[in-house]
């Protein structure tokens, strides 16, 4: 599936929820289901420090696509991280570098991306795109 198809699917999933509780329960669930990041990758290098919670991001190339694994110490951020991984992981580096991430806003979660200092999510998106750019130039 293309990046935008995955985003549209997530928007569709979230459109089913009328109440904030179900929306956040879904995010929490996704956080819980995210495969734990191997402790070996929870390094100082892979850490994206927010003021309150931490996010770890590990990136690697496999079969010409860029893959991401990530984790966070806060469960809601972890759920959001899992959505970002779901949308961006497994695509060509140039697609990731150029991706227009609109799903957070459409789902009504953009305030979490705006909280740059507290949760590091915005920095994570930036970092994922930077990996895309970096691997794109290596491939060329």
């Amino acid at each position: 599936m293309q990046i935008n198809e995955i985003q549209d699917e997530l928007i569709e999933d979230f459109s089913l929820f009328d109440e904030w509780e179900s929306k956040y329960e879904y995010i929490i669930d996704m956080g819980k289901q995210l495969a734990p990041l191997n402790e070996a990758y929870k390094t100082e290098e892979n850490i994206i420090k927010g003021c309150q919670s931490r996010v770890w991001l590990h990136a690697y190339i496999e079969d010409d696509v860029l893959k991401f694994e990530a984790d966070s110490d806060a469960i809601i951020v972890k759920g959001l991280v899992s959505m970002l991984v779901k949308v961006l992981s497994g695509h060509k580096p140039e697609e990731i570098a150029q991706a227009d991430l609109y799903f957070m806003e459409r789902i009504g979660l953009h305030q979490h991306l705006a909280q740059t200092r507290s949760n590091g999510l915005a920095s994570m998106v930036k970092q994922m795109k930077t990996y895309g750019l970096a691997y794109q130039s290596i491939n060329q």
Binding site: W20, Y24, C51, Q52, S53, D73, A74, I75, I76, V77, H112, S118, N119
Partner: peptide
């Protein structure tokens, strides 16, 4: 429970607290 999760879920309920260090 991480304090940030507490803060986010209280905010959804209209309650403003501070979380963090």
């Amino acid at each position: 429970i991480h304090h940030q999760d507490i803060g986010v879920l209280l905010d959804q309920q209209g309650i403003a607290v501070r979380t963090g260090h």
